[in-house]
Amino acid sequence: MAAPIALHLEFGGGAELLFDGVKDHHVTLPSQSEPWDMKQLLVWIQRNMLKERPELFVQGDTVRPGILVLINDADWELMVSGVSWSTSFRTKIMWSSSLLCMGVNRRPHKKTECGH
C-alpha cells in the first residue's frame, strides 16, 4: 500500500485558465495499492481539479501534444515511461500556448473550433 503523496502542482503558459486561473496547487493524492504514475495523475487531475474543457488538457491517456510537463524542473520526456510519483516531486504543467487560442475575451478554446 503506497502512502498518500503531497504534491505541488503548477500550471502555466495559459494552462492555469483551465483551473480557475490558479497557478499554484498543493494537493494530496490518496493512498492506493499501486504507486502513482503520470497516467493515473492525469486522470486524478481531470476528476478532481479540472474546471472546464478536459479535451484541452488530455488526449488519450497522456497530455495533449503542445503541453510541456516538467518534473522537478526537468522535461518529463527525459524520464523513461512508468515513472512513479514520490513526495519530493514538484510538477509543473504548462501550455506551450500555440494550440490554445485565448481570443479577445480570454476564454481559452481550441483553435480547431474557433471561428474568428
Binding site: 495559459g14 500556448s97 481570443g103 479577445v104 480570454r106 473550433e113 474557433c114 471561428g115
Partner: peptide
C-alpha cells in the same frame, strides 16, 4: 496569452 496572428479554425 499572446494573440497569435489571425488564428482561424483551419489553421488550428
Amino acid at each position: 496569452t499572446e494573440c497569435i496572428y489571425s488564428p482561424n479554425a483551419y489553421r488550428g
